[in-house]
Every structure is written in C-alpha cells, then in structure tokens.
C-alpha cells in the first residue's frame, strides 16, 4: 500500500522540490517503520502465550521431576504412604481420591447436565431457554470458595445427620463438585445440540417420528462428539477443582472405603501443605501438581484431537 503511494509521490510534480520531497519521504519511511514495530509488538504479545505455557511446564517439571526420580516413579505414584515429615512420598491414595470424587460427581452431573442441555436447545420456549442460560452463567460465576462454604455448612451437616459418619466425605465432595461442573457440561452440550443441522430434525419428524424420538435417535447421536467434549471438559474442571473440595472432603490421606469416607485429592494436598512445606516435601507437592498437569493436558489434547476428527 505505502509503496504505491510512494511511487505516486515520486511521479507527482508537487514534490519536485527536493527538500520537501525528502521530508515527506522520511515521514513515510518512519510510518513504515512504525507499522513494522507495531506488528512486532503484537506478534510478541501473541508469542507470550507460548512463552507462558513453556515456562509453566519447565518450572513445574524442574521442581517435580528430580523428586519423582529420587523416590522412584513406582513408589511415588503407586504407594499410598504419604508421611512427608518422614520422607515417605506416595500419592496413590490422593490419586485415587481425586478420581473417586471426580467420577462420583460426574455420575449425577453428566446425565442432569445433558438433559438440561437438550431441554434448553430443543424443548424450552425461547424465553425460558434464555433465562436459564443466564442463571447457568451465574452458577458458573460463583467462586469455588463460596461453594465450599455452602458445602461445609449445609451439605456436610446434612450427610452427618441423615447418613451418619462425620459428614466430611466423598459424597459431600461429589455433590458440590457436581454442581460446579454443571455449567461447563450444559453450555458445551447445548451448543453441540444447537449445531445439529435443522434438516436432520425435519427429516426425522417428516418420517413420522415424535419430537422425543427425534431427540433420542437423531439429535443426540448427531451431537455426540460435542457432548463427549462437554463431559471431558467437565471432568477436567472437576479433577482440577481445589478450594471447594478441600473444605468438604475431610482430607485424610487414606484410600476411601465407601462414599461416606473422608478423602484427600491431589489438589487439596497441594493447597493444604504448601504453606509450610520445604525441601523435598515442597518438591513432592510440585510433583503432585505435575501429575495433575499431565492429566489435564492429556484430557485437553483428547478434546482437540476428537474435535478435529469430528470436523473431518
């Protein structure tokens, strides 16, 4: 663009005056340089993303890997003896704890979330669908520490009185976590269902299927990959959740026996002990974070790859 203008200027008789021309030309060059500079700055801010993820990986691994090597991968991952003051760093109980709480929360939040997503996309009158969408945004916006607080003063005493035990349990974690992952599941599943081509639905209805038959046999199968994405991202959210879980699950470092047993997740372990940990103990907490990080990144990659496969 600028080059054309420049050539025009050279041709134009207006700028025959040499000094004037040089002045204009310099200003033009300066503009071109400024444009280049701005583009570089913008490029660098985009590159910051890559830098950040590289730094995060580097620093967490640099802290975690040496400890895992020292303890041995086997003993670190598959041993449930966690006594950091005595040099025993086995996170198996917490690994199992994270998975137990996560899957128990998904057990009820996934079906409820998908049903609600179908309701919003297919059944609800538009006004109700829109309002429900706003309420779900609000649900997503409530901070996890508030969920933990509610869990501790409402859910935990309820479990203690109705089901026994001391209330701080897998069940309390599953109830609170389920509520927290509902918005993720509903939003993504709803978008996937809405993206199903209208013709699919119309063809099915034209063949004489009822609305519900169409939903169950045409729309949900067509939105399958999006619904799976919703479930996987919900799972990622659940497994990474910290504050709410730490407040309601009791945090003892044993493998839970049943749904009323207390449990400690990997995330809870980090936030509970980081405040006073030092040396190997601190490194072991970073190693716990590293395991969590690898887990989450794998889940994300699965979503990205399956989304790509879905597009093809």
């Amino acid at each position: 663009m600028e080059k054309i203008v420049e050539i025009d200027m050279i041709k134009s008789k207006k700028y025959k005056d040499k000094a004037g021309f040089r002045k204009r030309n310099n200003a033009m060059l300066k503009n071109i340089n400024a444009e280049k500079l701005i583009e570089t700055i913008l490029l660098l801010s985009a590159a910051a993303f890559i830098l950040v993820i590289v730094l995060i990986t580097l620093f967490i691994f640099a802290k975690g890997v040496p400890l895992v090597m020292q303890v041995g991968i086997d003993d670190f991952l598959f041993n449930s003896d966690w006594r950091p003051m005595k040099g025993a760093f086995g996170i198996w109980a917490m690994f199992v704890g994270s998975l137990t709480v996560t899957f128990s929360s998904m057990l009820w939040a996934v079906p409820l979330g998908i049903i609600t997503a179908v309701f919003m996309a297919e059944i609800a009158p538009p006004v109700i669908g829109r309002w429900l969408g706003r309420l779900i945004e609000l649900l997503a916006g409530i901070p996890s520490v508030v969920y933990g607080f509610i869990g501790l003063i409402v859910i935990v005493p309820f479990i203690r009185e109705v089901l026994g035990g001391n209330g701080l349990s897998v069940l309390a974690g599953a109830i609170i976590l389920g509520i927290m992952i509902l918005p993720t599941i509903i939003n993504i599943a709803r978008d996937a269902i809405m993206a199903v081509p209208q013709e699919y639905k119309e063809s099915s209805l034209a063949l004489g299927a009822t609305h519900y038959q169409t939903i169950a046999r045409v729309i949900i199968p067509a939105a399958r990959s999006g619904i799976i994405t919703a479930v996987v991202l919900g799972m990622g959210r659940a497994i990474g959740e910290t504050m709410a879980v730490v407040m309601v699950t009791g945090n003892s470092t044993v493998i839970p026996e049943n749904i009323l047993s207390p449990v400690r997740t990997m995330t809870s372990n980090i936030v509970l002990e980081m405040g006073y940990a030092a040396g190997d103990h601190q490194a072991a907490l970073f190693a716990t974070g590293m395991v969590l990080f690898i887990f989450i990144v794998c889940l994300n990659l699965m979503v990205t790859i399956s989304a790509k496969a879905g597009r093809k």
Binding site: I53, I60, E241, V271, F293
Partner: peptide, 17 residues
C-alpha cells in the same frame, strides 16, 4: 492451541507456577 490449553489448566497449577 496454547490459549485453549491455558484456559483448561486448574488454578492450583497456576498457583504452583
């Protein structure tokens, strides 16, 4: 891709970093 990955990382990991 990194932006999507960052969005999915739990806050405790950011805290550690």
């Amino acid at each position: 891709l990194t932006s999507e990955t960052l969005a999915g990382i739990p806050s405790i990991i950011f805290g550690l970093f």
